[in-house]
Structure formats: structure tokens, C-alpha cells
Amino acid sequence: MLQIHELHKSYPIGDSSLHVLKGIDLSVEEGEMVAIMGSSGSGKSTLLNIIGMLDEADSGDYILDGLTIKDLTEKKAAVYRNKFLGFIFQSFNLINYKTALENVALPLYYQGMKRKERLELALFHLEKVGLAEWSHHLPKELSGGQKQRVAIARALAANPKLLLADEPTGALDTKTSHEIMAFIQQLNDEGKTILMVTHEEDIANMCKRIIRLRDGVIMEDTKVNQVRAEQYV
């Protein structure tokens, strides 16, 4: 599904440069649910951004679903992001003047789907996250948990191969966090591959595999017994 080999990334800071990723080797199989952990500055977000094609590595190989991701033009990156990846952000990142339904339909718009079709499909995904009756509400009329569920529906809309979540529960209270995690686990049960950045131990334990980063290298890569989130809900 996803292979990374000897990945390096550094950022220029003034005259010197900050070496953020110092040779990452990583392989993720289809159907896995991986948590990437580490203290701030460990490079976990940079790794996720590179995987999400929002940023580019200086050197190393990145192969996604058999496709080498290298030297992408902006246009190509846009097409790949749309086709392969679904993003879930800590701060939801919904477009505030669009309704829940329109937000979910947006990736489908960029796929070139017809309006009627994409609104139907978006409604289907909203139903899946249990928000069908909220479809015509603006984000500001929704609670944090509802917003994140809309964001998940949006991430799923284009039927991506890989779901990338950057601190998906970072802005939510514990109860809502567990609801969202239960939902993400359910998606994983259905076969979606999920990659998640988090710094919360209990959230990480709800995944199937934990990768710990420190100073740009992988310190630890262990399979864990998944804690089911339903029991807390």
C-alpha cells in the first residue's frame, strides 16, 4: 500500500537548516490503522504532510499504491490528493460559508462529478456519519464532534485509498473523542487504511500499530492490541 525508504527532509531556518526527517523507512499494508506519535518537533506532522503530498521530501522514495510520488507538478499533486487521499484535520477545516452537504461534495466537485450526482453521494456519506438531517446547516451551527464527522464524511466522499488524520481528536473533549475514534475504527473494520498523527497515548492505543518518532528517526514500531472505543461511548 505504502512504502517509504530513506526519506529526508530539512527546512531552511535563516542561514542554517533544520534537519527534520533523517532517513525514515516505513511500510504500511492495506487495512492497517497506524498511529504516529512523538513529541512536538519530532517530525511527525512533516511525515504526514509528505505522505499527504502537501509537502515534498528532499530525498528518498515514496511509493503509494505502486505509484512513485516524486517531482509532482502542482496539478498532478492535486489530482493524486483528490484520488488517493482523504484528510481529517484537528481544526476540521470546513469551509465556513458552505453547508455541511456542500462541504462534503467539494472533493467530488474537483473530480468533475455532476452537481446532482455529487450532492446525492455527499448525502449518502453524511447519512453514514449520522448527520443527514444536518446537511443544510453551516459549520458554525454544528458542534465540534459534528464538524469532525462532516470532515470525515468529506474525507470519505472521494473514496480514497488512504485516510490521513492529523490529531483528529485534538480539539474535542474526551467523550466526543471516543465517539470519533469509534467511528474511525469502524471505517478501518470496513477495510480503510488509516494513518493518524496523535500525541495522546489512549488514542494511539485505539490503533493497531504505533510508530514513535524522535528527532526525525523512528524509535519504535510496534503492533498493539487495539482498544475498542465503543466501550467508552
Binding site: R81, L106, Y110
Partner: peptide, 12 residues
């Protein structure tokens, strides 16, 4: 907003 659109696959 433009960042979100790009992340969702908007071409330049």
C-alpha cells in the same frame, strides 16, 4: 479556504 480546496484536489 484555498488551502482546504487544494488539499481536497483543487488544481491551481
Amino acid at each position: 479556504e484555498i488551502g482546504i480546496r487544494k488539499a481536497l484536489g483543487a488544481s491551481p
